[in-house]
């Protein structure tokens, strides 16, 4: 994280970062301190929080749908949040409400929750939630949402750049106040998910068995998906749609034999945070002073590693990750 703080369009020596972190900041030039506190630290924290949150939510969704391919972007909930945020910006609801809390957040939350509701309604019509219909519904919804975003962008060329950010994902717009809001939402949400985590394991045994153990499927899913959608909406409103983190990190964590949901969510948060900070650092340095979109880098690093894990798992235990 400290290394990521040094790197960017203007380089800061690693020693300066440590000087700053260990309270010897007064010896540093004022511009350096400003860059560290206003730009670099918010950005690294945002990357860590969002990466960790996406990975944890990915683990939750793979557990709920009993499907190793489930993930917020595959299910279309990320695009739903992006669409909500895009609509909020276009209709001019992006004004500040309190502090850095803008209309885009509200749009994203509504978008995410609505998408989730559409998917679960379609998935539920087949009786159980663990069927491929959930995933297909998600993929279709995701395409629909992306198409709608494209339409909105084309109709509002003057705001296109702003909306385009949601399609690619970036941490470059991180500010101190945005980071604080994000940190509060992610931390509260994560604590709630950790509390409810064992219920996800119980649900995996099937609806009836879960009921005999005192876990009601409908109610539990509603709680878990509401929490996940809210966290996700804030991540998307801050940094856009970042694919793949939610899909691969839970598999990486499983590969190290962490299976129970409570430990898995915690591990996913840590691994997801580290992974995303590394990816964001790469974004900043490869074509400096320009930047790569974070989504491209997470996929570029994540996809080959995922294929490697898949291959290794096939050799070890017949395909099950």
């Amino acid at each position: 994280m400290a290394v990521s703080c040094c790197l960017g369009s203007s380089n800061i020596a690693l020693s300066s970062i440590f000087d700053f972190l260990f309270g010897r900041g007064e010896t540093l030039p004022e511009t350096t301190v400003t860059i560290i506190t206003k730009l670099r630290i918010p950005r690294v924290l945002t990357a860590a929080l969002i990466g960790g949150a996406l990975a944890s939510i990915g683990a939750v969704m793979q557990g709920i749908f009993k499907n190793p391919m489930a993930d917020p972007s595959v299910l279309g909930i990320s695009s739903g949040a992006a669409l909500g945020a895009a609509i909020a910006i276009v209709v001019g609801l992006n004004g500040v409400i309190i502090g850095a809390f803008t209309g885009a957040y509200i749009g994203a939350v509504i978008g995410a929750v609505l998408t989730w509701f559409i998917i679960i309604t379609i998935a539920k019509s087949s009786g159980e939630y663990d069927t491929s219909s959930t995933l297909l519904a998600g993929i279709a919804t995701s395409s629909l949402m992306s198409a709608l975003i494209t339409v909105i962008m084309t109709l509002n060329l003057q705001k296109m750049e702003r909306i385009y950010m949601w399609m690619l994902g970036t941490f470059s717009a991180s500010t101190v106040s945005k980071t604080i809001i994000l940190a509060i939402v992610v931390m509260l949400g994560l604590i709630a998910l950790i509390i409810f985590a064992p219920m996800i394991d119980v649900l995996k045994l099937g609806k009836e068995t879960a009921e005999t153990l005192g876990v009601k499927q409908g109610r539990t899913l509603a709680i878990l998906m509401t929490i996940s959608s809210i966290i996700l909406a804030f991540c998307v409103a801050n940094a856009g749609v970042i694919g793949f983190v939610g899909l691969i990190i839970p598999h990486i964590v499983s590969f190290f034999k962490v299976y129970k949901m409570r430990s898995k969510i915690i591990m996913c948060f840590l691994v997801g945070a580290i992974f995303t900070v590394i990816c964001d650092t790469i974004c900043k340095i490869v074509i400096a002073p320009g930047e790569l979109p974070i989504g491209a880098v997470t996929s570029l690093i994540g996809a080959p590693y995922f294929l490697f894990l898949l291959l290794k798992a096939r050799r070890q235990n017949g395909g099950a990750l």
């Binding site: 793979q62 557990g63 749908f65 009993k66 499907n67 190793p68 159980e128 663990d130 064992p198 394991d201 119980v202 995996k204 045994l205 099937g206 009836e208 068995t209 153990l213 005192g214 876990v215 499983s254 299976y259 129970k260 990750l321």
Partner: peptide
């Protein structure tokens, strides 16, 4: 149930321990 479907991603021991959840 007749069969347990889907991706559980749990160890056998974990599955049996869930019996004591309530």
């Amino acid at each position: 149930a007749q069969e347990t479907t889907g991706y559980l991603n749990l160890m056998v021991r974990d599955v049996i321990e869930l019996s004591r959840y309530s």
